[in-house]
């Protein structure tokens, strides 16, 4: 009987402790990560995962090297910069297929149907940030440079955009985008979004990363983690589970009203699972190649890093 009890208790005791560092605070962008944890997907895979919220001062890749986390979420530019400096980071899944980093603008101004329409506009960019890299790529594609537009430095608040001092303002489409669009529409100023992917710039956003050593020494642990995580994302974005998914986000993001959370979830679904039946987590190799080429072209990395060698996830067929 004692033996039976021990055997029954064994799976729980044997759960592998794992720390998973997110890129940002818990919101709709992390619904699958939270869902996998709260709804027992990790536990079922024999993992005791501690999901830690990210933030502006957090860098999952550094934590992987320091041994403070085993898995994390990082953007493509972080991965490529880290690879350029010899970091042993590898990508095991790509969550966002469409980059949520887009630009918001007032619907009252002419729509941006062509990149040449950017000429003469005042555009918000975060100097040193992803959005600067993306916008400079778009401007180069349009044959424009700094003299043809006015770039305005972006900080934490949206005042310059609200006041009309900027025409375009960078925004995370599925989180801030919903909140700001709602606020402006209620104030009688409907908005549109400018998505760089519509103009051929597919700069990869958040991906799941781990340490090369962990992949080599414990491939089974990496496989179980990835599988449980992607199952969590799949379930969270399944329309049939929408109520549970919303309830999960609301536990971690109580300040966002339920109707906005629902809209954020729907947009997140489009960015992570662009088509019904899409296998979540698939690595978009072409987009990674383009991301590296963009960074190389702008002198953000001194030489090629062969980022494709860092991709160890399910690839686009």
């Amino acid at each position: 009987m004692l033996l039976a009890c021990l055997i029954a208790a064994a799976p729980a005791d044997a759960a592998d402790p794992v720390t998973y560092r997110l890129k940002w605070l818990c919101n709709s962008s992390t619904v699958g990560d939270l869902y996998a944890d709260v709804h027992g997907f990790f536990a079922a895979a024999g993992l005791a995962v501690e999901v830690r919220a990210g933030g502006p001062e957090r860098d999952a890749i550094k934590e992987l090297e320091l041994g403070q986390a085993q898995f994390g979420v990082a953007s493509a530019d972080q991965v490529i910069r880290a690879a350029a400096k010899g970091s042993p980071v590898v990508v095991i899944a790509q969550i966002f297929q469409v980059n949520p980093l887009q630009w918001i603008y007032r619907a009252s101004r002419p729509p941006i149907d062509d990149l040449a329409d950017l000429e003469g506009l005042t555009i918000g960019v975060t100097y040193g940030g992803n959005d600067e890299t993306i916008m400079r790529t778009l401007l180069a594609k349009a044959g424009l440079d700094d003299r043809d537009v006015t770039l305005m430095s972006v900080r934490y608040d949206f005042t310059p955009f609200y006041r009309g001092r900027a025409d375009l303002w960078p925004i995370y489409r599925n989180s801030q985008g919903i909140v700001i669009a709602d606020r402006m529409t209620r104030a009688g100023e409907p908005v549109r979004f400018f998505n760089p992917a519509d103009f051929g710039v597919r700069y990869v956003a958040n991906s799941v990363v781990t340490h090369q050593r962990l992949l080599e020494t414990r491939p089974d642990l990496v496989r179980r983690f990835r599988q449980a995580l992607l199952q969590g994302w799949q379930a969270a974005l399944d329309e049939r589970n929408e109520a549970q998914a919303l309830e999960t986000i609301a536990r971690f993001d109580p300040d966002t009203p339920p109707d906005l959370l629902a809209r954020q979830l729907r947009v997140t679904r489009e960015l992570v699972r662009p088509t019904a039946g899409f296998a979540i987590g698939r690595i978009d190799v072409k987009a990674w190649r383009q991301s590296e080429a963009i960074m190389r072209g702008q002198g953000l990395i001194p030489e090629p890093v062969d980022v494709l060698a860092r991709l160890h996830g399910p690839e686009e067929p």
């Binding site: 890749i61 550094k62 090297e65 320091l66 880290a82 400096k85 010899g86 042993p88």
Partner: peptide
Amino acid sequence: LAGLSDYVIPGPLL
């Protein structure tokens, strides 16, 4: 000591 890459802590040359 911890074998960290230049991404975490840059070496003297960098």
